[in-house]
């Protein structure tokens, strides 16, 4: 598990719109060479926020990041986000 590396990806995208565009355009390329597990990499590629949350991604960053790179319907995201992460309670997000 490499929570720090997941947090780092999310923060880079939040801080710089160009980085967020690069992430969205080709996520696999963006993540190449980073010290991430396969599960983390897949969750980032799929913007699978529930898995990222379960793995201990920082919730403050996850919130901003998910809304930033989400490609689907935003109203649906807002409606489902809490429900989808709720089963995981409060994972430890310390790095």
């Amino acid at each position: 598990m490499s929570k720090y590396q997941v947090d780092k990806v999310m923060r880079e995208a939040i801080l710089d719109a160009k980085v967020a565009s690069a992430f969205r355009a080709d996520t696999e390329k963006f993540l190449a060479g980073r010290d991430l597990t396969e599960e983390e990499k897949k969750a980032l590629i799929d913007v699978d926020y529930a898995t990222l949350y379960r793995l201990g991604a920082h919730p403050f960053l996850l919130n901003g990041f998910t809304r930033l790179v989400w490609k689907g319907d935003r109203a649906a995201l807002n409606a489902e986000y809490r429900t989808n992460i709720a089963p995981f309670g409060y994972p430890d997000f310390s790095t």
């Binding site: 919730p59 403050f60 996850l62 986000y81 809490r82 309670g89 409060y90």
Partner: peptide, 14 residues
């Protein structure tokens, strides 16, 4: 100084 009281962001209670 600035801070806040109870708040949840990116969690189930948001």
């Amino acid at each position: 100084s600035s801070g806040h009281l109870a708040i949840e962001i990116g969690g189930p209670k948001e």
